[in-house]
Design a protein around this nucleic acid. Structure first.
Length: 221
DNA sequence: GCGACAG
DNA sequence: ATCTTGTCGC
């Protein structure tokens, strides 16, 4: 299925008005969301980690048919479903969510991290491996049109572009990512990435009429 | 028209 | 993201 980019663009512009910039109350739990692909299937994984102990307290995953192609600035329309399908299966909801991709460091200020934050009304942080939009100088990325700081570069096994998704401030987002930078990786995202890669290597699955395969949390590991 | 372009 | 092994270097 192709993507109506004009309609998608209007959705992003409208929903971007719902982004909230506010301090994040000290979180106890953090989730990492990631998606892997194989053939025409998307494997979404959500991992919840206890900040004080770094122990994994919940895991969930979803296997759905991948229908939308990747088009720069429209990543959410391809990965939102697999990520949210996994997220809603969590029995323990996190205080804040880390997403693979940008938040407001996006042409229309509405990257996938912001999209998820607005839809779930939950604090989210965008953590990307490369820049999509903005002028990078030193460790800050600014919007060339407004001069506003839209992201900060955090060194953690390479550059990580950290931006606000929603319900958080850039300062709190950066503090959280730095705290979770372990062994050159943002821990929760590393776990989610490893799990999605593992998951897709498993046996085929049976799909229901909605194009989703039943997968237990144990089956994710 | 040209270059840029998350995963 | 995915296709793919070894190899050069700290």
């Amino acid at each position: 299925m192709p993507l109506n980019t004009e309609a998608a663009k209007r959705i992003q512009e409208v929903l971007a008005n719902n982004i909230v910039f506010s301090p994040l109350p000290p979180p106890e739990t953090v989730a990492g969301l990631d998606v892997a692909y194989s053939g025409d299937l998307a494997y979404g994984v959500a991992v919840v980690v206890q900040l004080s102990t770094l122990q994994v307290i919940d895991i969930a995953c979803a296997i759905v048919k991948s229908v939308v192609p990747y088009i720069p600035t429209f990543l959410a329309f391809r990965e939102l479903t697999p990520m949210l399908r996994a997220y809603i299966k969590l029995r323990v909801k996190p205080d804040v969510i880390l997403v693979d991709g940008h938040g407001i460091a996006h042409p229309r200020k509405f990257g996938i991290a912001s999209h998820i934050g607005v839809v779930l009304k939950k604090p989210t942080v965008g953590v990307a491996k490369s820049r999509l939009y903005g002028e990078e100088q030193r460790d800050v990325v600014t919007d060339p049109l407004t001069g506003e700081v839209i992201a900060k570069v955090v060194r953690c096994g390479g550059k990580k572009y950290v931006s606000v998704g929603s319900y958080i401030t850039l300062e709190d987002a950066v503090k959280l990512v730095e705290k979770l930078c372990i062994n050159k990786d943002v821990y929760p995202l590393r776990l989610a990435h490893n799990m999605s890669q593992k998951l897709k290597q498993k046996k085929p699955h049976v799909f229901d009429q909605w194009g989703e395969a039943p997968v237990s949390s144990e089956e994710c590991t």
